[in-house]
Design a protein around this nucleic acid. Structure first.
Length: 607
RNA sequence: GGAGCCGUAGCUCAAUCGGUUAGAGCGCUGGCCUGUCAAGCCAGAGGUCGCGGGUUCAAGUCCCGUCGGCUCCGCCA
């Protein structure tokens, strides 16, 4: 019989109707006579009553045989539950189905873990993802992702954007990350690379007159993973022609409002805008979390002449002294301060000075080197009050920002100063186009080399690259980068000059992506756009109170932290025949390096 | 490339200073039970302590290596 209802659907007003539902056995309660089955599909749970008197012996027999995760078809009558027998915890708790016919569609092995167990480890869940995904939370997360994707598509379509697919098999371009390689059989010895992003293709689409493009694009990078980083991730990738930066930001804000609204979350546009300089100065980060204070405050001027040699010397040497004021209220022990010092050390800080404001007055090992009036000036500048601890780092500006910026975030979480209900969306703008590369002595593109310098910076490209500000913007939410974009270069000459600064001479530029220069030479519109991290957006949407969840919770089939898929058992060893076909041979790095062993998982039904 | 934490029953975990027969909850199997919904009651099964080596009279416990998972630095937009 054809399904008439999802499990989550039947309600009181349907009492008496004959229905057909299909799903998985969530649980079974056997009373010897009557057997209750909770049947589950993606919409919810529904109680099935297998009563030998009302449904007959066949119904009872199938229910008796059924076990968790068996797949059943149930035909029966919707009945109101008796007085006091309702289950308020189920959407369908007012009714039940008196089974007239139960068909066993598929048996199931004992599940490797219980679906309602929230403590199951990620390893188990990824190994048996097809079971994990049956859980209501995961079904909800998939739904959230779908709704967000649909909202993005609808919003952008309504605003004149065309969804256009771009190739997965591409040529390497000089972006930052390592490429995944795809050997080409038809041209042995050559390879494609998988896209790190559709960057160049979308710029080409602008030159092709598409005006406004978007795509939910897969982006692949062969780099080490993190909790919020997978080897493949999805971006809402978009690009617009004949626009300036403000027009792009307005468009993205409208998109984000729509995407968040798709899951019932209200965010206010326009988003606050910080320049890169201000963000680094106040928060020590280019992706500031503004849900809490602890802003960085500079005291270089106050301590330039203090007796404390460390501070004085750093200021004299062109460095700076900055600090954060932590409302610790006695919750930071000496040992924790030592841990914080070690943590700051990971980011280059040579030490961490502190002053605690106790009820009896300030307390600190460095107090005796700082004259009373200077102390007072410092406390005043921080607005320090009793219970606060001031933490200082003195070093080069870059180290100060990094160390204090990281400390700020760590302490906010440690002391629970983060309002987890807030969604703080903001723009960081005016990024430098280049940063120094200490290894080569040259320059790298801070984001990528296709961003347009601000017009007034064009003349400094060669003379003072580090001062060049680009029309570049990052979308930041709760301290995480959600997206990055820019107004692009559309002038081949400017593009060549930028590439030269990052060490790609003109001849090589023509070789490596001459096609882009050729595109520009044939008439390219001014254009700009963004790539938004769709997985992270979904993580925030799924977060509820937590404000975000691990992105693996909103990806159907994620990889582990070493890039493995525990369900498929990949990556797996090369097939020698396939290698031969593409003209490749494995090399032994050293004596014991046997060819890669098979990584197939042992002893499973999948292997 | 580097650092830290973890790996014991199907799952989540415990096991004192290295000491005798490795435990618990849930799940599972069988029996009883006609209104449960975390069903209940009774009985039972279930272990390569990730793997390999070492120290020791004795190793789940200590050491080395290795595999796997997680987190972080580097890396990465």
């Amino acid at each position: 019989m054809r399904r008439t209802h999802y499990c989550g659907q039947p309600r009181l007003h349907e009492v008496g109707q004959t229905v057909c539902v299909k799903g998985w056995v969530n649980s079974r309660r056997d009373h010897g006579g009557v057997i209750f089955l909770d049947l589950r599909d993606r919409t919810g749970l529904l109680q099935i009553v297998a009563d030998p008197e009302r449904g007959g012996p066949a119904v009872h027999a199938v229910a008796d045989e059924s076990r968790a995760e068996y797949v059943l078809e149930v035909v029966g009558t919707v009945a109101a539950r008796g007085e006091g027998l309702e289950n308020p915890r189920l959407e369908t708790g007012q009714v039940e189905i008196i089974a007239q016919e139960i068909t066993l569609l598929c048996r199931a092995e004992h599940p490797p873990f219980e679906l309602d167990d929230t403590e199951v480890g990620l390893e188990q869940r990824l190994r048996y993802r097809f079971i994990d995904l049956r859980r209501p939370e995961m079904q909800r997360n998939l739904r959230i992702r779908h709704d967000a994707a649909r909202a993005a598509r609808e919003h952008l379509s309504d605003h004149g954007f065309l969804e256009i697919e771009t190739p997965l098999l591409l040529r390497a371009t000089p972006e930052g990350a390592r490429d995944f390689l795809v050997p080409c059989r038809l041209q042995p010895g050559t390879s494609y690379v998988l896209p790190q992003s559709p960057q160049l293709m979308k710029q080409t689409l602008m030159a092709a007159g598409c005006d406004r493009y978007f795509q939910l694009a897969r982006c692949l990078r062969d780099e080490d993973l993190r909790a919020d980083r997978q080897p493949e991730h999805t971006q809402i990738d978009l690009e617009m022609s004949f626009v300036d930066q403000d027009e792009v930001l307005d468009t993205i804000e409208g998109l984000m409002v729509a995407v968040f609204a798709s899951n019932g979350l209200t965010i206010e546009a326009p988003f606050p805008r910080l320049t890169f300089e201000e963000s680094m100065r106040r928060f020590g980060s280019d992706k500031p979390d503004t849900r809490f204070g602890l802003e960085l405050t500079e005291i270089s001027d106050l301590v330039a002449d203090a007796d404390f040699k460390v501070f004085r010397a750093v200021v004299a040497g062109g460095g700076q002294v900055k600090g954060i004021c932590v409302p610790a209220q006695g919750r930071l022990s000496r040992r924790e301060l030592d841990e914080l010092t070690a943590y700051a050390g990971e980011f280059g800080a040579k030490g961490l000075a502190w002053i605690a404001i106790d009820a009896e007055g300030p307390r600190s090992p460095i107090l005796k080197f700082i004259a009373e009036p200077i102390q007072q000036a410092i406390f005043e500048r921080f607005g320090a009050r009793e219970g606060d601890i001031l933490l200082f780092v003195a070093d080069r500006p870059k180290v100060v920002a990094e160390a204090l910026g990281r400390l700020r975030v760590r302490l906010a979480h440690q002391l629970e100063l983060v309002d987890r209900n807030r969604i703080d969306m903001l723009w960081v703008t005016d990024f430098p186009l280049f940063e120094a590369n200490p290894e080569t002595g040259g320059y790298d593109a801070m984001h990528h080399p296709f961003s347009m310098p601000r017009p007034e910076c064009l003349e400094m490209l060669e003379s003072d690259p580090l001062s060049v500000i680009a029309q570049l913007y990052d979308l930041v939410c709760n301290g995480a980068e959600l997206g990055s974009g820019s107004i692009r270069i559309h002038d081949p000459e400017v593009q060549l000059r930028v590439l030269e600064v990052i060490g790609i001479p003109r001849a090589e530029a023509a070789e490596r992506f001459g096609f882009l220069l050729e595109v520009f030479r044939h008439g390219a519109p001014p254009h700009g756009g963004v790539g938004l991290g769709f997985d992270r957006i979904c993580g925030i949407l799924a977060g509820q109170e937590a404000a975000e969840v691990d992105i693996r919770e909103v990806i159907a089939f994620p990889k582990t932290s070493t890039g493995r898929d525990l369900m498929l058992g990949c990556p797996s060893a090369y097939d020698p025949r396939a290698l031969r076909e593409v003209g490749l041979r494995l090399v032994d790095d050293d004596d014991d390096a046997a060819p890669a062993k098979s990584r197939a998982l042992p002893g499973t039904s999948l292997s």
